[in-house]
């Protein structure tokens, strides 16, 4: 059947495949430079280029580009201030980098034939673990044993506080998982959907020829058309959610007593 060949071509999973561009092994670890590494570096390069060029003139009255930078600066700053308080601003460079990295990685993934780094659970999980390590490390550094108050809510009868503490520990442990899976699943599902519907439209034309096939392609094409802006929105919202939750968790490290 011809559909077999077509079915291979619209395989929605192949877009997530990693292809090594330069092999490199250190011991038993494979550290090859891949298409994914390339996209990460492109994202970083674009962020740095953008920030560097648009703040180069340091004008008192900002131009269009500089005011975009200033807006995002204030956006992240306000986000930290409202969730973690003013002393959370010490993490400003980290949260800013995190937000921009995820945002640019997501947005680059929206360009056709570009690899989406955030569609790989390892990447998002590593980002989440960076956040958790920072939270635990800074929380212990700043509060010492007092950091454990995070799991010991005040004002609860002793009979059930143990139960609550166990729940708190479980919820704390599941944070990196929920943080990483949320971003990863959103990106993965969105890209699979896009590929499926777009591939379906192409397949219709391929199977029935241009004339009747166009009518069959109409619905999947409309779906693709509707999904693209939605995916752009998701790309932004997920970066925002990731950064926002990072701020919330960092707030725990700063003030473990009250929540």
């Amino acid at each position: 059947m011809a559909a077999d060949g077509e079915g291979k071509r619209i395989d929605p999973i192949s877009q997530f495949e990693i292809t090594p561009m330069a092999e490199w092994k250190v011991g038993s670890y494979d550290l090859s430079f891949t298409n994914s590494s390339l996209m990460m570096l492109i994202a970083v390069g674009l962020i740095l280029l953008w920030l560097f060029l648009s703040t180069g003139r340091r004008s008192l009255v900002p131009g269009r580009w500089q005011s975009i930078v200033e807006l995002s600066y204030e956006f992240i700053g306000n986000m930290i201030r409202s969730t973690a308080g003013s002393d959370g601003l010490r993490f400003f460079p980290f949260v800013f980098s995190l937000f921009m990295f995820i945002l640019f990685a997501n947005m680059l993934g929206m360009i056709p034939f570009f690899f989406t780094t955030t569609s790989h659970i390892v990447v998002t999980f590593t980002l989440a673990m960076m956040v958790m390590c920072l939270v635990i490390g800074y929380g212990v550094y700043r509060n010492g044993w007092g950091f454990l108050r995070l799991f010991w809510p005040s004002g609860i009868p002793l009979a059930i506080v143990w139960f609550v503490a166990i729940l708190e520990v479980i919820s704390f442990m599941s944070r990196p998982i929920s943080l990483s899976v949320r971003l990863w699943a959103n990106m993965l599902a969105g890209h699979i959907l896009l590929k499926l519907f777009a591939g379906f439209a192409v397949m219709m034309v391929g199977a029935f020829g241009l004339f009747p096939g166009v009518f069959g392609a109409l619905i999947p094409f409309a779906m693709t058309f509707a999904l693209v802006p939605l995916e752009f929105l998701v790309a932004f919202v997920q970066a925002y959610v990731f950064a926002l939750l990072t701020c919330v968790y960092l707030s725990d490290a700063l003030h473990p007593g009250h929540h």
């Binding site: 550290l31 990460m40 920030l51 390892v122 960076m130």
Partner: peptide, 30 residues
Amino acid sequence: PPFDPGYFSTQIFWLLISFGILYFVLSRGI
């Protein structure tokens, strides 16, 4: 592919490299 453990090490390595560069330049300069 997103679950292929063969690529975990390269993904983590290059993520740390690129994010490290980004964090360093942003926090020190821009």
